[in-house]
Each structure stands twice: as C-alpha cells, then as structure tokens.
Amino acid sequence: MNSRAPLNTAPPGMAEGLPVRFADVSWDSMRHDIEYVLVAPQRTRQPLLVFLHEGLGSVTMWKDFPYALCEAAGCRGLVLSRWGYGQSSPRPGHEKWPVDFMHRQARDFLPAFFEAIGHDTRADPPWLYGHSDGGSIALLHAAACPGRVGGLIVAAPHLFVEPVTLASIQQARDGYVTTDLRSKLARYHADPDSAFWGWNDVWLNPEFKHWNIQALLSAIRCPVLAVQGHDDEYGSMAQIDGIAQEVPQAELLKLDDCGHSPHRDQPARLIEASVAFMRRHRT
C-alpha cells in the first residue's frame, strides 16, 4: 500500500521515466514512508533484484547503476531508501540505532517492506544486491529467511569490525563537522543528519566493536557472489574470505583499482560478473 502517490519525475541520476513511490510500512511499533523505485516492472517472468544501499546511501545515490545492471541482466529491479535515508521517513533526532540494527533491518524491516508492497517472497524469491551495510543486511536476511531469497550479490559487506573501518568512519565524522560533506549529502537525503548520525554513531559506539555476523552465515542456502576491492578504505579481503569459509557455494570477485564502492569504481567489470553469475544460477 502506498501512503503517498508516485512522483512523476525520476530522482536525479536515475534513468528517466522511473516514478518514485512510497510504501507505508508498519515496523518497530511505528509507521514509515519508505521511498522506492521500480525498474522494468513489466518483466514479470524475470527475477526481481532488490538493491540495498550502504550506510550513507539512498535511492538517488546509486545513480544509474541499478538501471544498467537490470538492463544487462534482463531482470526487474527495486531500489529503496531504508528508514532514515533518502526521502524515506527520517530517524527521530533523539533516537540512536541499536547495535543490532542490521539484524533488525534484515529480519523485521525487509519482510514488513515486502508485505507492504504486496510482494510474495515465497512465490517469487527476490535476488538481493547489497552494498556495505546493505550487503550485511542482505546476508542476514538470506540466513534468516532461507527459501525466500533467490540469490545474493554483496559488495564490500561487513562481517565484523576492523580497525581500518573505524578509522575511516571517524574520518568521515570529522569531515561532516568541518567540511561541506553535510551539504553534499543533502542532495540525496531529505534529512542528512538522520542519515549521517544514525550510521556514524552506531559504528563508533564502543559496544559495536564486538559486532560479528560470520557464524550466522552457514544458514544461507542460495547462491552468493561476494565482491571486494583491493583498495577498500572500509574493510579488507578478510570480509569476503569469511563468507567463503561459512558459505561453500559462495563465489568471490576481488577487484583491482577498486575502493569501497565497486559500482562506482569498476561498474563494467561488476556488471559483467553479476550478469554471468545470475545467468548461471537463476531459474
């Protein structure tokens, strides 16, 4: 069910003709307007690929990547801004994300979102493309809901907290306070403080240093492609190597000349590998 009518214009950076929609999602004892965009919904016989953004991401921050990947793969796409991001309902200023926020997003929010838009994940298991925090959420969702996910592509996901991650997040905090980072994020988020401090505060919470999801991954039954750049400033190859240790069917893609965002640094290589992976495993 949509609580707001679709907008007539595509968000900046997305392909023209993709209306922005809002799902009315009941979750965590609250109701939220969740922004989302559909790519090629007319391809009803093809898999649905759901894009889960990074810790500072949104629908618009993906630019044209979801459209390009869905066109190359010949599939449908769904791009959403999680609660607190993009044009979705903002996080209340006094509220901080709990340490298990990614578990909650994976186990509770995603099922509530799919229900709100009327997508039956048993009859039509979606594929998930997750980046960074979104990759972790995708992994957790597949582990918690086996049989309801067709496959995973996770780019720069986090399994555990590394010193390099915390150092980069602290650097981002300094930049948000002292540079024009806030105004840049305001291009993509209705409430940039909601997006930034929600992400930054929980990652720099001392209790978050013990966050680790690796042991949960053995429950994943679907195909997995895990992608990491050799120059990732937010994590090392230990992250996707950890996926391979727990998920025997996982395939790894390690990219040269690539930082934390493979879809920006190596889009052609990433799309080529993702399309080949989906074609091998989709039914």
Rank of each mutant, 00 (worst) to 15 (best):
L217H: 06
Y234A: 05
Y234D: 09
E272Y: 04
I220P: 12
E115P: 02
D33C: 02
A5Q: 07
H210G: 15
D265L: 10
M30G: 06
M14Y: 01
R282T: 14
P192C: 03
D257C: 12
Q249H: 15
R82Q: 05
K96V: 06
F208I: 08
R76F: 12
R122I: 04
A116P: 03
L140W: 10
I137L: 04
H158R: 15
F65C: 09
G55R: 13
R279I: 03
E95T: 09
P146E: 00
H158F: 14
P248D: 11
S168P: 10
S261L: 09
E162N: 14
R221G: 14
S58T: 03
A144N: 08
Q170S: 15
I117Q: 01
R45C: 14
V20S: 00
G84A: 02
D265E: 08
H141G: 06
G242S: 09
S81N: 03
P163I: 15
T121Y: 05
D265S: 07
P90W: 04
D193N: 07
D64Q: 07
W83H: 13
P41T: 08
V149D: 00
H230A: 14
L18C: 13
S58Q: 05
L80H: 10
P267V: 05
W62T: 07
E95N: 00
W203T: 14
I169E: 11
I243R: 11
R43D: 12
R76A: 13
A244S: 15
R107K: 08
T179E: 09
S81D: 05
Q171G: 15
F208K: 03
Q249D: 12
F196N: 02
I240E: 12
E207Y: 08
N200G: 01
V37F: 12
R187A: 01
A273R: 11
W127Y: 11
A195M: 00
D180W: 01
D24R: 03
W197C: 04
G147A: 01
L80G: 04
F114S: 10
T44L: 08
S89Y: 04
S81I: 03
P111M: 00
H210F: 12
P146S: 04
N2Y: 03
S29T: 06
F277S: 03
M61A: 02
P41H: 10
Q170D: 15
E54Q: 03
A73S: 04
L52K: 02
Y36R: 09
W97I: 01
L252H: 09
A106V: 05
V202M: 04
A138F: 10
A138C: 11
D174N: 15
P157C: 07
S29Y: 09
Q228D: 15
P206T: 06
E207S: 15
G84L: 00
C75S: 12
P192W: 10
Q171C: 13
T9R: 05
A186M: 00
S194D: 09
E272P: 02
S88R: 01
A226M: 11
